[in-house]
């Protein structure tokens, strides 16, 4: 067994995985698979309770599609800026990366602002968390999506802060930004589904 003597030290092999995929990237994708089930269960609940509300307000009386279309557009654009941040990280264009990260964070905050506006205006119109089945399943589904966006904003902010440090994000910079991007895009595609199911399909 001559091969063994050539074996590189383990901290080098760490990046040398069986499949060639980085461990962290693989875990992120499996985690996103798990998240599909999380949102699947929430969406199921929403669909099952459609038409089960005993009192109003009902979806068609309260949903403001133009406003939500605007916030959907904002989230979609944040995916674009995110992918450009990844592009910047992968091509060594750090200025672009930081700028695009900042843009993504701001767009995420705008989306959250839209959601806060939507929630408060719904509450003013009489739809609380416990008003009816629509209220409960709507707030819980979109609320957990919003929580994911908020976590994403934190995640990206920490990336931006870390890239400001002298050591930057280290040798794995492109991978770190890529992983954050995967999470962010996932939150976006979940919204694509939620937007269609809650807002676009009339009741």
């Amino acid at each position: 067994m001559a091969a063994a003597t050539h074996e590189p030290p383990p901290h080098v092999t760490e990046h040398h995985t069986t499949t060639g995929i980085d461990n962290r990237k693989m875990m992120m994708w499996i985690f996103l698979a798990s998240e599909c089930l999380f949102f699947g269960a929430l969406i199921s609940t929403y669909l099952i309770f459609q038409g089960e509300s005993l009192v109003g307000p009902l979806p068609h009386e309260i949903l403001n599609i133009p406003v939500t279309s605007a916030s959907t557009f904002v989230l979609l654009m944040s995916s674009l800026t995110m992918v450009l941040a990844v592009y910047g990280a992968q091509h060594g264009r750090l200025g672009m990366m930081k700028l695009m990260l900042l843009a993504t964070i701001l767009l995420g905050l705008v989306f959250l602002g839209f959601q806060a506006y939507e929630f408060t205006s719904f509450v003013h119109e009489g739809l609380g968390l416990t008003t009816n089945q629509f209220g409960s399943s709507f707030y819980v589904l979109t609320g957990f999506h919003g929580t994911h966006v908020a976590v994403g904003v934190l995640y990206l902010t920490s990336m931006l802060l870390a890239s400001q440090r002298r050591t930057g994000l280290g040798a794995d910079r492109a991978l770190h930004i890529d992983l954050a991007g995967l999470y962010w895009h996932f939150v976006d595609i979940v919204w694509i589904v939620i937007f269609t199911i809650i807002y676009l399909i009339p009741h």
């Binding site: 998240e35 999380f38 089945q133 819980v140």
Partner: peptide, 21 residues
């Protein structure tokens, strides 16, 4: 597990915040 998580969260909302899933 994510499916159970959703159920437990909904049960928590029912018990603590007065929803009725």
């Amino acid at each position: 597990l994510p499916v159970l998580t959703v159920g437990l969260l909904q049960l928590y909302f029912d018990r603590v915040w007065g929803t009725s899933f």
